[in-house]
Each structure stands twice: as structure tokens, then as C-alpha cells.
Design a protein around this nucleic acid. Structure first.
Length: 481
RNA sequence: UCCUCCUUAGCUCAGUUGGUUAGAGCGGCUGACUGUUAAUCAGUAGGUCCUUGGUUCGAGCCCAAGAGGAGGAGCCA
């Protein structure tokens, strides 16, 4: 009596029919009657469940009592064409082993709809729910697609350091990394903490960006990208921010900012298409879920398109490309600006665009993804290439619902321009001597961008809160699990 | 960090101008019934009303502080 082990994904896509098979998973629900018992089982390999059919007398009351929602079981039997509706195949159980019981009185995941907020509190169980199963299968697909896209185009993946000795990366507050005793740190002559006694002999932090380091590899290996964890100690409490998140940063030798925008657009479309192609079942589920959520909202806040239609829309339409200056003109003449509906009115060139302005451009004016480029130099980072006027060759890709999904630029490759800019922005040259070296020896035109991975996953899954697209979210005041 | 809102059964929520014993649906349990699909029907158990302090004859309800959560803003990806 040998049973071949299959995943539920394999069984529901045609494998094992009329054969002796074994499946292992977690019980979703059990429906019992005198003559027959049905168990819905899921193993995470697909959103679909497999139905197990059994004879209550043969399985025995003692065993059946322990088969409750959340219990893990191994079921063996013949996979047969289903006698009932709702599924094509079902497993006629000859034998069931309960691997781990789940006391229904206290198991927190009930066979009913739960709020996302509640599931966040049981983050160790939430991947057993349909929604989070779908989200994390999609997240995996996006990780895989990122590497596929770059590998197919001759990019090399570079692991840039997680611990950095530089605090000049210029992207916000950092988390300190230290082995010093917080209650009794060594003190220097000036009375401050003596970091020369610390593990690395200097003050170190968790990285806020791998960009500067990966530039060194772009200027030696050509096309490169990082995909790693990133840490920001900002006290940001929004549905779009995490203290620990994952970022993808490609950096390309001999790319100007136009090449950069072309790549960004092709990249995003590739990822969206990959999801549409490879994750149809999960997307269909999330699409329904998204539609139900939207119906709870008042009419004027609803999205016009369903999740799948939003993805198709992005993949099928060219992104709108406008300069910052053009964006300001559009906003200045816009209805909400004239009627003073914006909280921040647009009056002059040079101010930064706020969320409400980005949303207006993407969701109301163009109704598609928008790339804004050539920003005023005063609102952008020191390493962005000067256009010769008062702008730099920066570019931001804005998506409906989530705002900025990509931020990038052509990098300043001219040593004297870079030094001047660093001086103006009070960035000490000693900190970045090696970064300047790259401009002294064999400098080249190059560009790159950063994609917030979770924001992409938000867009692709339709999840409104970024805490629901990362396994165990880290946010201010919250590092449970 | 700022603004707004929320916290009542395992979950989602209702709870009147402050007034006897705090309710519903779902979930759990018990039973019945059925090739069932988050089954159905009947019954049943289940409460530190977030915490602390205050006002009051009396607080789930009013006031203050704190904790946790959500939405928005800023910062950004």
C-alpha cells in the first residue's frame, strides 16, 4: 500500500487522478453527517483547497473529533472525480493521521471572515488565511520576476552591505548598530561615547540604501542591481511606510536619465505581466476581495477599475512623462488649485509636490502612471546630475493609490560638480572619499533607481496597508514576532 | 511627530437623556438532519465594557491621564 505524495496545487491541476495519493495540510473546515464527512484541506501551495471525503464509521469518532479547523493532517486515499459540485476532484480517504491538533475553543483563526487588523495581531497564523496565502505567493512571484527580469538583461545581482559606516547616504534617520553596553559606554575625552571602542572601531548603522555601494559595481561590471533589506528609523505611521523594507536598486553604466526611465517602465510592466500570467488564481481571489472592499467605501472614493483591470491598464498603456516644470503648470491651472481645494496651493516653481498633487496628476488628470523628471536641484539628493540650469536629472514614477513607487536619477559623474554640490549640502568629503574616487578614475555616465518592493506588492495585490504585504512588519512601536 | 477617529463575548459590532440582570450576528460546544461547499435547523455556554484616577446616590455612557489600533498629513520607497 504505497501512496504518492502530492501538493494540493498538483492535485487540483490534474495530477494523481484515480491513483493512491497522500496530501498533507491544514484543515479549513469539516462538514459532518451520519454517512459522510467532508474536510476542506489547504497546504499553501495554492489558494484552492482539496476536498477529502470519508466514511465517519471507518474513520472513527475519536479521530474525527480531533480534525478541527487549523489541525494539521496527512490524508491518504484514492483521488477520484468529485461526486459533488464545486470541485473537479476529491480524495476518498482510506486513512487520516492527525499530525497536530488545534483546539477549536482557543485556536484564533476561525472559519469566518476576519479583519486585517486582527490578522496582523496573529501574524504567525495569518499566512494560513486565504488572503495572506495569496499575498505571499504573489510576493514570491514578484521576487522571482525581479531576478528573472534583470538576469535576462545581463544584470548582475550585487549584495551591498547591510551595516554601513557612512551616515551620508542621505535618506533619513538610521538605526545604530553597536555592541557597546548602553548603560556604561566608553567615554572619550570630549565626554561623548567613544565609538572607536565599538565593534567596528567607528559608529555604524543599518543601511538606508545600497545605491552608493552598487554604483561602484556599475562602474566595473556595467549593469547591476541590489535587492535587499533597508532600514529607516523615521517615525512614519502610514499605510505606505515600514521601518524595515526591501528595496531594489538597479544601477546602469552608460545610461542617461531617458534610458533610466525606459528601463523603469519596462521593469514595472514586466512585473505586472508576470503576476497576470503566473498568479491567475490568487489574483482572481484578490480581485474579488478588492471589489468587495471597494463596495464598502463611499462612491466618490472608489477606484474606477478592479484590481486585475488596474494591472492590465498599467501593462497596456504608456506611462505619461512630464517634467517637473510641466507638472507645476498643470497643477497651477488645475481646478482644485484655483478653487483652493488643495491643502497646499501651488503658486511658485521650486516647491516639492505633496501627496495630494501627485494623486491629482495620476488619478484625475492623466489617469495613468506618470513619470515626473527634471526636478529642482534644491529638493533632491546631492548625487543627482545637474542639468546646467537649476534642475537635476531625477525622475519619480507615480502609481495610482500608492504614490511614488520608483525614485531615481542620472548620477553626477563630473568630479568638480559633485564636490561643489557636496559642499553646498554640507556632506563631508572624507565620508565618501571612495565615492569621489569613482569620478576621479574612469568616470562614466550612469543612472539608477530605487523600487520600494512592498509598494509594488501593494499595487499588485491591491492591499491597502503595507503591513499586510510583508511577513512580519516592523513599524514604530511594533516589532512583535 | 501632528490632526481626527476607534477600543464592549473568541471575531465583527449594537448599546437611547448616566438608572435594575449589558445584547446581536458569526465562531465554539451539544443534538438533529443532509454528497456537503464559510452547509442547514434547534439548543447552550461565554463579559476585568482597554488601564488608572476623578465627577455622581449611581458610570459601558461624563471628565483627565496613559496604553493599543485605524485613517489622514509630514518624511520617503
Amino acid at each position: 500500500m504505497t501512496y504518492t505524495k502530492y501538493s494540493i496545487s498538483q492535485l487540483t491541476s490534474g495530477a494523481g487522478l484515480n491513483q493512491k495519493v497522500r496530501v498533507q495540510g491544514w484543515v479549513k473546515s469539516k462538514r459532518e453527517s451520519k454517512n459522510v464527512v467532508f474536510i476542506s484541506l489547504n497546504d499553501g501551495s495554492t489558494i484552492k483547497n482539496v476536498q477529502i471525503v470519508g466514511d465517519p464509521e471507518k474513520l472513527g469518532e475519536t479521530l474525527l473529533r480531533t480534525i478541527n479547523s487549523g489541525a494539521s493532517i496527512s490524508a491518504s486515499g484514492i483521488l477520484q472525480t468529485s461526486h459533488g459540485k464545486g470541485q473537479t476532484v476529491e480524495l476518498a480517504a482510506e486513512n487520516i493521521i492527525v499530525d497536530g491538533e488545534a483546539d477549536p475553543e482557543i485556536y484564533p483563526l476561525q472559519p469566518k471572515k476576519h479583519s486585517l487588523e486582527f490578522l496582523r495581531e496573529i501574524a504567525h497564523f495569518r499566512p494560513r488565511s486565504q488572503t495572506f496565502g495569496a499575498v505571499f505567493r504573489l510576493r514570491h512571484a514578484m521576487i522571482f520576476a525581479v531576478h528573472q527580469f534583470f538576469n535576462d538583461r545581463g544584470f548582475y545581482n550585487i549584495h551591498t552591505p547591510i551595516i554601513t559606516g557612512s551616515d551620508a547616504e542621505g535618506a533619513g534617520e538610521m538605526f545604530r548598530v553597536t555592541t557597546l553596553d548602553p548603560l556604561n559606554p566608553p567615554v572619550n575625552e570630549a565626554g561623548g561615547v567613544d565609538y572607536s571602542k565599538d565593534f567596528f572601531g567607528k559608529e555604524t548603522n543599518l543601511t538606508v540604501s545600497g545605491q552608493l555601494e552598487v554604483e561602484a559595481f556599475a562602474q566595473s561590471m556595467g549593469l547591476v542591481y541590489t535587492f535587499g533589506p533597508t532600514f529607516r528609523a523615521e517615525n512614519s505611521n502610514t499605510s505606505r511606510h515600514l521601518a524595515e523594507f526591501w528595496m531594489i536598486e538597479p544601477e546602469m553604466a552608460w545610461y542617461d536619465n531617458n534610458d533610466n526611465m525606459d528601463l523603469a517602465e519596462a521593469f514595472l510592466k514586466y512585473l505586472v505581466n508576470y503576476a497576470l500570467d503566473k498568479c491567475a488564481d490568487d489574483l482572481e481571489f484578490l480581485d474579488k476581495r478588492d471589489t468587495q472592499e471597494e463596495q464598502q467605501k463611499p462612491q466618490h472614493q472608489r477606484q474606477e477599475l478592479s484590481l486585475i483591470d488596474r494591472l492590465k491598464f498599467v501593462s497596456e498603456h504608456q506611462f505619461e512623462r512630464i517634467t517637473y516644470t510641466e507638472a507645476i503648470e498643470i497643477l497651477k491651472n488645475s481646478k482644485p488649485n484655483k478653487k483652493k481645494k488643495f491643502q497646499f496651493l501651488i503658486d511658485a516653481w521650486g516647491s516639492d509636490l505633496k501627496s495630494e498633487h501627485e494623486r491629482y496628476l495620476v488619478e484625475k488628470h492623466f489617469k495613468k502612471p506618470v513619470i515626473i523628471y527634471n526636478y529642482p536641484k534644491d529638493i533632491k539628493a546631492f548625487y543627482m546630475r545637474s542639468n546646467g540650469d537649476n534642475t537635476v536629472a531625477a525622475m519619480d514614477v507615480l502609481f495610482p493609490g500608492i504614490g511614488e513607487v520608483i525614485g531615481g536619477s542620472q548620477r553626477e559623474e563630473r568630479l568638480e560638480y559633485l564636490q561643489k554640490r557636496m559642499k553646498e549640502m554640507h556632506i563631508p568629503e572624507e565620508e565618501l572619499w571612495w565615492y569621489l574616487d569613482l569620478r576621479k578614475f574612469g568616470t562614466i555616465t550612469h543612472s539608477g533607481f530605487g523600487l520600494g518592493f512592498e509598494r509594488l506588492v501593494q499595487f499588485v495585490t491591491g492591499m491597502n496597508n503595507i503591513r499586510d504585504v510583508i511577513p512580519f512588519p516592523r513599524t514604530p512601536g511594533s516589532a512583535e514576532f
